[in-house]
């Protein structure tokens, strides 16, 4: 489907209007809201059926500053950061070890997207952050060896500069889609 959407496709609308926010207001996010974002993350599909994602939520100003210092990809100043980690210890115990690693990363990606989409319902914007130093984050968050930090999501209320949302891009679907076989 492309072009104008029929009425009442709220999920499509959310998906198409989402875009990264990098410019945030200095305004705290209620804890209850952050928990709703984690709830959204936990609702992501997981290969093997076992959710081995762990989410470290950071809201303390000094902690956020330290994290930004080791995250060159975090150009804005978010009110909260959610570190998406894999519990590799539990994955191993459940037989979802090294052979399943790709599936676990994919599942964490789905959790990331759920967080980004859910954030919109609370007036929040977010940005995935992949450019950070894993070892440094381990130190700052006190992550045990068994917890692998994979990605962070920076969240906060967008500033007026960040809005209005740009028009959703109109991809050339034929470039991305192949019917029946690759051609």
């Amino acid at each position: 489907m492309s072009g104008a959407l029929p009425d009442s496709l709220p999920v499509m609308e959310r998906i198409l209007s989402r875009h990264v926010t990098r410019d945030f207001q200095e305004r705290p996010i209620p804890e209850e809201t952050l928990l709703q974002l984690i709830r959204a993350a936990c609702a992501a599909p997981w290969g093997g059926g076992a959710h081995v994602g762990r989410y470290v939520v950071v809201t303390a100003n000094l902690n956020l500053r330290k994290i930004r210092a080791v995250s060159p990809g975090m150009t804005g100043k978010p009110s909260a950061v959610i570190a998406l980690c894999l519990d590799t210890g539990e994955a191993e115990e459940l037989g979802l070890g090294s052979g399943q690693k790709t599936a676990l990363y994919l599942a964490l990606g789905a959790a990331m997207q759920n967080i980004l989409l859910a954030a919109q319902d609370f007036g929040l914007g977010g940005c995935p952050i992949g450019s950070f130093h894993r070892g440094a984050l381990r130190i700052l968050l006190g992550l045990p060896e068994s917890l692998e930090p994979v990605l962070m999501v920076a969240v906060g209320f967008p500033t007026p500069v960040d809005r209005p949302k740009p028009e959703p891009p109109e991809p050339d679907l034929s470039r991305f889609t192949h019917w029946e076989r690759f051609s």
Partner: peptide, 28 residues
């Protein structure tokens, strides 16, 4: 102290990032 941590992190990270990120990191 944050700046020193940032510079070291950027020096490490830009080894594996697109070339253009280096110039951005310097401005950050």
């Amino acid at each position: 102290a944050e700046t020193l941590a940032f510079l070291a992190t950027a020096a490490n990270g830009t080894l594996h990032e697109p070339k253009l990120y280096g110039t951005l990191r310097l401005m950050q």
